[in-house]
Amino acid sequence: MKKVFLFGYYGFGNLGDELLCAYYTSLLGAHFPELKLIILRDKPNEQEIEYKTVSRWNLWQLSKMMAPGDLLVGGGGSIFQDATSKRSLFYYLALLRLAGWRRLEIILAGQGLGPLSSLGRRLVGPYLNSALGISCRDQWSLATLVEMGVNRPLLYLGVDPLWDFQAPELLFKPAKRRYRPSALGFFFRKEERNRKQRLLFRLKLRFEGLRLITLFPEDYPVAEVVSQEIGASPPLLLTEVRGLAAIAPELTMVIGERLHGLLLAAKYGLPGIGLSNDPKIKAFCQQMEWPCFSWQDLCVENLMVMAIEEVLSDLGSAEQQVLQKRTEMEKKAREERDWFLQLIEQTLVK
């Protein structure tokens, strides 16, 4: 029985990455039941019976499990970057090298590339050229591949895979929401705390409601302190989609430092604004035609307030635009899914 090894930033508690893991697990299991699915996680789940999980860190164990003709599938995320961790990048490159040594076919799906240092680009390019196919979730990531000289794999420009994610909580059509006027959701990261505190305090004074939302456990303690300091309600730590489903009807719009927070909010029909130095947030906002600001922008607090007021001044049009974009992005995600499945089918018949 051939095996498919699925990897990503799985097992660390980040809601977006856990949803990506669930998406690809369901997709592969439904379309290729003849394959043995093995998921690489931070810590294996011994109670899982539908598929096998193994420690991502035990490369020696993985090498013994891998055999020529097996598949290594990278399932979404921004794993090939060295802005937050060079150690993480070296791990993924070691995994690709191991797969090449064991003569596995490599498919990387729904990838966000970068940010990468000049050294990172020189290291990553040759490894990615060993892949059979790579799909990118935005134009910026595809351009990064081209700049690094990655030209051997089949390349596909798609969107984030979670546009195709069909959890029960995301199947409803947004109806008239029961929000208070100007109720803002803020997807929070722990960085830039001092500047963020000033911005959030100003937003709380200017608009009626403000709720900090975290998708990653490491962000929550800082969000809790900041909420107390500005006199806001306690933050939310979302570990499941249903948590966002519960609060979405109360929100008018969202501000996002987390890509998948913005994406999930858009699936609920909520308008948004990006706020991050990370190019993946800017790329997503360009796809959605949303405003996006960086902490490096001068007078970013003023820019944010003006952008929020502009959205609220014609909220109906903003909501309609989100629904139109959602339809467009979900269609592109289905097309990318078909490309991904077809590539695996072609690989299996070799």
Rank of each mutant, 00 (worst) to 15 (best):
E229C: 03
E229V: 14
L264Y: 02
P235I: 06
S233G: 06
G231A: 06
A245N: 00
E229M: 12
I230Q: 01
I230D: 02
R242P: 03
A246D: 14
G243F: 05
E250G: 01
L262R: 05
P235Y: 01
L262F: 04
P234Q: 10
A265C: 07
T239C: 09
P249N: 03
G243S: 08
A245S: 13
G231K: 00
M253H: 02
L251F: 08
H260R: 06
E229A: 12
A245E: 15
E240Y: 06
T252R: 03
S233Y: 06
L262S: 08
L259Y: 13
A232P: 11
P234G: 06
V241W: 05
A246T: 12
T252S: 15
G261Y: 11
M253Y: 01
R258F: 13
G261H: 04
A248G: 05
L263A: 11
V254M: 04
T252M: 01
L251W: 01
G243N: 03
I255W: 01
E250T: 14
A265D: 09
A232H: 07
L238M: 13
A246K: 14
V241I: 14
L236Y: 13
T252E: 02
H260P: 09
L251Q: 08
Q228C: 05
L264A: 02
G261M: 11
H260G: 10
P235H: 04
M253E: 00
P234K: 06
A246W: 08
S233A: 15
V254D: 07
L264G: 04
L238E: 11
T239M: 12
L238R: 00
I230S: 08
H260F: 04
P234C: 03
G243M: 09
H260E: 03
I230R: 06
L251R: 05
E257K: 01
G256P: 11
T252N: 00
R242M: 11
E257S: 14
V241F: 12
A232M: 00
H260Y: 12
E240M: 05
E257Q: 15
P249K: 00
L262Y: 00
E229D: 13
L264W: 00
E250M: 09
L251G: 08
M253T: 02
L238N: 00
L263R: 12
E257P: 07
H260M: 09
A248I: 05
A245C: 08
R242I: 10
L263M: 15
L238D: 10
L236T: 03
G261R: 03
E229I: 13
L236K: 04
L262C: 09
L251Y: 02
